[in-house]
Design a protein around this nucleic acid. Structure first.
Length: 502
RNA sequence: GGGCGCGUAGCUCAGUGGUAGAGCAUCUGCCUUUUAAGCAGAGGGUCGGUGGUUCGAGACCACCCGCGCUCACCA
């Protein structure tokens, strides 16, 4: 570690020297602004309009080919890369300065657009400005494009740890990474626009909460000094959004971070983005159609198609999605009716499916695990799993015609849960009983069971309209649409163990 | 937490017991339409750490550190 640092310092030291030389030549290495008027992709895509016209472009130097008294370089702006051409005869002093510039430096170029002998669209520089000197070398890959336009990348910056820790470097040298995050932004904007058009109101509710609830999860705990109370980082938005429905909003949604103090793997990050939405006077049947519409809207507005490939499987979001019954689907796979089975019977069944069942106790957890093991993996095409056992769903309304069942559905795609929704419980007496059941489970050792939220019950006691509620894990949705199999590849700065920087 | 794997130059990697290597990047010189530009030369490493085996360890063994994948946990 010590030696690599020394070695890197040699490269950095050299760049400090160049920086001083540039200053001595009268080039301020850190500029205040540059009046950019063109993007590289526009110039390349509309060459006939740009040819021989003067443009002002800016960006980072990504490659340099010096040939004595003339040089080529590629600079990268937000849209892509373009070649620039510099001649000593024409820019004199600035050419001498260019010799002190490196890959990674950010420059501004004014020049006219032309095509080189070999056919590359290039900006022939008349003026060169240094905008920011880079003093740390980039792990720059080499990119070769063959006749067919196929790109081969040599020495790609691939170390996952470094890519996540120094995402800024990852974004500079791996252009596909930038594409994923641009898509992420577009998808979220599209969802927002769709919900706004449908008359839902975007709202913000507390992240710091005196009680947590709305999901089965372990919270992060923090402390407020002035109030001298412990607070929880929210695990879900649900209980506050429902209070707003009590308050008279007919439709609200929130897109924001939730926090769960649990394991991390390729589909779990401790902080993640959730969409939650609540629509008064609607039920879960309405919501199923609405979810289909949300996805259809993303498909058409952002991608112009409904078919996607994820982990080698083709997935089609065309409406309507397949709908299966939760209890029946398990019965189909195992022959067992989980509702009318005892805890002992369920445990036995689960033992036949997987080896270790010791960590799982309680009927609810057993049923959920049996479902995960038997049904879930086969739900590749978008599928709604409908009507869940009551014991799994402390906030959902009892089914209007089925015993021990609630009106709830989850949307599955590619074997993964994408959304969760129900006809929301609005009976305060029932709600209190459900909370008390949760407390029992908690004292029985279930760390994820809810505490009782008295204020939430009080709100419900004033009268809560019937409503449908929905939660969508945005990160996982982005993974599907951008074909990324790790959540870390759709979050700019995924959680990492703290780095020791000497 | 379990299993598997990885850690060698700034980057990507080769090196399975006998003088630490390659390409790119860096530096010097030449080169005024190049394309992983080219040509000639140069610098850069206590091979993640500690201990051990051995005449000799980057390599083998043990432990530690860091990371990745995977299983478990986790809507």
């Amino acid at each position: 570690m010590e030696n690599t640092k020394t070695d890197l310092n040699v490269l950095i030291k050299r760049r400090y020297e160049e920086l001083e030389e540039l200053k001595n030549k009268g080039f301020e290495p850190y500029a205040y602004s540059f009046d950019t008027n063109s993007y590289s992709e526009d110039i390349k895509n509309n060459f006939s309009e740009y040819e021989n016209n003067t443009v002002r472009i800016s960006g980072r130097i990504m490659a340099i080919r010096r040939m004595g008294k003339a040089s080529f370089a590629h600079i990268m702006d937000f849209t892509g890369r373009i070649q620039i051409y510099l001649k000593k005869d024409e820019i004199g002093e600035e050419y001498a300065a260019f010799k002190l510039m490196d890959i990674g430096d950010i420059i501004g170029v004014e020049g006219f657009v032309f095509k080189t002998r070999t056919g590359e669209i290039t900006v022939h520089a008349n003026k060169l400005s240094l905008l920011a000197k880079s003093i740390r070398p980039l792990p720059i890959p080499k990119e070769v494009e063959d006749d067919k336009g196929e790109k081969t990348i040599y020495d790609q910056f691939a170390d996952k740890e470094l890519r996540y820790r120094q995402r800024y470097v990852d974004l500079i040298v791996n252009p596909d990474v930038k594409k994923v995050f641009i898509l992420r932004s577009r998808i979220v904007t599209t969802i927002r626009n769709f919900l706004d058009e449908r008359g839902l109101l975007e709202v913000e509710t507390p992240i710091l909460q005196p009680l947590y609830g709305g999901a089965a999860a372990k919270p992060f705990i923090t402390h407020h000094n002035t109030l001298d109370v412990d607070l929880y980082l929210r695990i879900a938005d649900e209980l506050y959004l429902k209070r707003l429905i009590v308050g008279g909003f007919d439709g609200v949604y929130e897109i924001s971070k939730d926090f769960r103090n649990e394991g991390m793997d390729r589909s779990h990050n401790p902080e993640f983005t959730m969409l939650e939405l609540y629509a008064a006077y609607k039920d879960y049947n309405w919501m199923m159609n609405f979810v289909e519409e949300i996805f259809e809207n993303i498909c058409t507005k952002v991608f112009g198609k409904t078919e996607f490939t994820f982990e080698g499987k083709t997935i089609d979001f065309k409406r309507p999605w397949k709908r299966i019954n939760y209890v029946d689907s398990i019965k189909d796979k195992t022959g067992v009716d989980v509702i009318n089975s005892s805890e002992e019977e369920l445990k036995k069944l689960l033992k036949n499916i997987r080896l270790d069942t010791s960590a799982i106790s309680g009927k609810a957890k057993l049923i959920d695990e049996i479902f995960s093991q038997t049904v879930e993996p086969d739900l590749v095409q978008p599928t709604f799993v409908v009507d869940y056992p009551l014991i799994l769903s402390p906030l959902a309304k009892k089914h209007r015609s089925k015993e021990e069942i609630v009106e709830r559905f989850e949307g599955y795609v590619a074997g993964k849960e994408l959304c969760n929704a129900f006809s929301e419980l609005n009976d305060p007496i029932d709600q209190r009983q459900r909370f008390e059941e949760q407390v029992k489970q908690k004292s029985a050792g279930d760390e994820e069971a809810h505490p009782v939220d008295e204020d939430f019950i009080r709100a419900m006691e004033y009268g809560m309209p019937p409503m449908a509620g929905l939660g969508i894990g945005i990160d996982r949705l982005i993974m599907l649409f951008t074909s990324q199999s790790s959540i870390r590849d759709v979050i700019f700065f995924p959680q990492m163990k703290p780095e020791q920087i000497a």
